[in-house]
């Protein structure tokens, strides 16, 4: 399974922001950390803003802060803002009138995609933050993602 770069950036940005909901973080700060252009990231942030997951704060020291519900926003919710993760369902329908070999391969690929989707749809931003904190042991979350 490969995620588009925008989906990956959106997830990283949300993790940064949700780990410190009180703080405003600038696009360039996040861009520098993940080595991406502020231009690309700005587009991603705009989409997240429209979905109500981040809020932009203007002025000096402005940037973005997290405005979603970290415990109820799943990775799939975020990914679906940037790419069509429902593809596999449609592929399966199309698959119904294909050759036997196409049908057999399609069924296997559907099984893989379906599992991936169920996994992404069950992991929330809060679960990601917990996992990161666990991995870093006793280290304070702020220093992990800050």
């Amino acid at each position: 399974m490969k995620l588009q770069i925008s989906s990956r950036l959106a997830i990283f940005a949300l993790i940064e922001l949700a780990s410190e909901p009180e703080r405003q973080i600038s696009v360039s700060e996040i861009g520098e950390k993940y080595g991406v252009s502020a231009h690309h990231l700005a587009k991603v942030m705009h989409t997240l803003g429209r979905a109500g997951l981040v809020r932009s704060i203007r002025g000096v020291g402005g940037g973005y802060s997290f405005s979603g519900n970290a415990r109820r926003t799943t990775l799939l919710d975020v990914i679906m803002l940037f790419e069509d993760a429902t593809m596999s369902d449609r592929e399966l329908e199309k698959n119904a009138d294909s050759t036997a070999a196409e049908w057999a391969l399609g069924r296997i690929l559907f099984e893989i995609d379906d599992t991936a989707k169920a996994t992404l749809g069950s992991i929330t931003i809060a679960t990601m933050l917990k996992q990161i904190a666990r991995r870093k042991g006793a280290v304070d979350l702020k220093t992990v993602v800050g």
Binding site: T115, A118, T119, S122, T124, T127, K130, Q131
Partner: peptide
Amino acid sequence: ARHNQLHMAFFRSEGMVA
């Protein structure tokens, strides 16, 4: 059940993985 989002979300949040 992999389509049971509630069960999946709960066990994942407790740190369980595949």
